[in-house]
């Protein structure tokens, strides 16, 4: 049968054509095409990878930010707390100082008042004593205006002395 008997000529030409085709295609078609495809694949992969990296970096940045924010918040909180404490302390201190001062002033006032009072009392005493002396003088003058009254007086005094 002719169709199952391979012809020599066709074997020859097929072999020749196939290998020329293989050579030409391998060199001028497959090599550039496969290289381009591979390059593109690599480019896509690296782009994807860098995108992934960027995403991870972004996430880490974000978490960093959050950390910073949290830290800042904490710091602020601490500062506020400190300030509040300082204020309270200042107020408390001021209050203490003021009351002390007030107490001091009060004490001083009290002392002054006391002194003034004492001085006034002494004055009054002196005035009263003067008044009493003056009165007594007047009385005495009035009583001892005549010689008789003086003599009675001396007598009385002598009488007192004798009794002693």
């Amino acid at each position: 049968m002719g169709i199952v008997t391979p012809g020599f000529g066709l074997i020859f030409w097929t072999t020749l054509t196939f290998f020329i085709l293989l050579y030409l295609l391998a060199k001028f078609a497959w090599k550039p095409i496969l290289k381009a495809v591979q390059d593109r694949e690599e480019a896509i992969n690296s782009a994807l990878k860098s995108a992934e990296d960027a995403k991870a970096e972004m996430a880490s940045l974000q978490s960093n930010n959050e950390q910073l924010l949290k830290q800042a918040r904490e710091e602020r909180e601490a500062m506020l707390k400190e300030a509040r404490a300082m204020r309270d302390k200042t107020i408390a201190d001021a209050k203490g100082a003021a009351s002390e001062e007030a107490a001091k002033v009060l004490e001083a006032a009290r002392t002054q008042i006391h002194n003034e009072k004492m001085a006034a009392m002494t004055e009054v005493k002196n005035q009263v004593a003067q008044l009493a002396i003056d009165m007594s003088e007047r009385i005495l003058r009035a009583e001892l205006k005549d010689a008789e009254a003086q003599k009675a007086m001396v007598d009385r005094a002598l009488q007192d002395v004798k009794m002693n």
């Binding site: 030409w13 030409l24 078609a29």
Partner: peptide, 29 residues
């Protein structure tokens, strides 16, 4: 017999078609 028979001619033609298909495609890259 290494004649260019009908099949050989068709074979060469198809080789030409293949080259005309892939070489320009490769040049594009």
């Amino acid at each position: 017999d290494i004649s260019i028979t009908k099949n050989v001619a068709a074979l060469l033609f198809s080789a030409l078609v293949i080259l005309l298909l892939f070489l320009p495609a490769a040049r594009g890259y």
